[in-house]
Design a protein around this nucleic acid. Sequence first.
DNA 1: GTTGGTGGTATTGAAGTGGTATTAACTACG
DNA 2: CGTAGTTAATACCACTTCAATACCACCAAC
Lengths: 244, 244
Amino acid sequence: MAPTLSRLKLDAAQSTPLYRQLAQQLVEAIEAGDWETGEALPSERVLAESLNISRITARKALDRLVALGLIQRTHGSGTFIAPRLNQSLTRLTSFTELLVQRGHRPSSRWLSRRLGTPTVEESLRLGLSADHQVTRLKRLRLADDVVVAVEESCLPGHVLSDPESVTHSLYRRLEDLGTPIVRALQHVSAINADAELAQLAQVPPSQALLMMTRLGYLADGRPGELTITYCRTDYYDFMVELTQ
Amino acid sequence: MAPTLSRLKLDAAQSTPLYRQLAQQLVEAIEAGDWETGEALPSERVLAESLNISRITARKALDRLVALGLIQRTHGSGTFIAPRLNQSLTRLTSFTELLVQRGHRPSSRWLSRRLGTPTVEESLRLGLSADHQVTRLKRLRLADDVVVAVEESCLPGHVLSDPESVTHSLYRRLEDLGTPIVRALQHVSAINADAELAQLAQVPPSQALLMMTRLGYLADGRPGELTITYCRTDYYDFMVELTQ
DNA sequence: GTTGGTGGTATTGAAGTGGTATTAACTACG
DNA sequence: CGTAGTTAATACCACTTCAATACCACCAAC
């Protein structure tokens, strides 16, 4: 039992209704940090029995906390401490997400989709033998029809054997095939654009570009995707939130 | 029979579900090294019978280990200990942390520590009026005595009024003053080094550098720090893990 | 191929959770 | 008084989770 539960004390003789007394005490307990974010509160029935009130009374108290945004309820599952508003994710904002957020219209254009053999680097990072086939995808990423990034993907043949079947989202296609990427390690670096990149990205030669190398893993832990993205920094500007 | 199997003990009376109890104990056993990498775990049926639970319950426990990347399953063949891969967090690896991890010796050298007035950009992002004083710090970050980054920090005067008092860690100094940075938004971009940067970072002019702009917040939500770090990409290579 | 063991999955039921309609008692106020 | 609104209780419904059974699909050894 949570320590808090035994500390709650209601007084029926008082003029303020029971459910308000309870709500008030719960607010104080939550703000004092008695529960972690995401942790389950005692169920309405437990709360009711241990305080000798009806479940409805306990429930009305919780209603107030919901209105305050302090807790969240899930039917059939329980009541949980709500995440505090501005402690958002420690997660990378994806290409599409970010552009949409900023009011741009993302799209992409295929440069090539074909089968091939892995380079030494690729076979090392993807854990393949040299005679393994790989699917190689290359495309331009656009925002409002302006090129903002060049992206090259390499996938083991056993993960994706028909390059042409990828029409829009690569990740979506992998999900449909039953082999979704569930985790990824992403390195971020910077390079000077060579002649080819500069032409594709429509920037002057030697312009500094963000280079992001993402190694995606399948559910079984094997590598399933190696993608390198070269980003123009005037458009894409990638962001992380740190908490501690 | 593996020695571990007889050590597993489940308690149906406990409130935590059986499959979680089992998962927890298996994680501990695996991390204790009870099985070699690639070795087969007891089959789901063996696990179930020896613990007097249904196969599904044993299976759900294994599901969690798969999600954690600890084991791999092969249909018709068995369940095996997965090769360990770098299990980094969904967190930014800090400058010092990363270098130490890779076996380097980090240090830093002050270029300047003084009071001044904020630029327009700084006063905007830190939420200051133009006549506010700011503390300005500039230093080189070294790994094994080679420059790997140039860092410029700007802090409101009310947060840090004596620049000279920062000797080693800025964050540590702020903690000591009772105004720690508890959250930060970090933008990552790339730029071409100008003449001054190139000279400080000891790279050719126009070399691509990672530019990381970090806006740190105090516990009360006010901005407390604006730091720009220019990183050589041949040394520092910053990494995030994505999960979803 | 056949066989025995493996993981994969559809379905079920019990128990626990929040959701809601209805009713009884109390209070405030004209 | 009598009415309206608030407070609190009961009873029942719907959803989720946990654990079980039964059956299917795959692999390897013979």
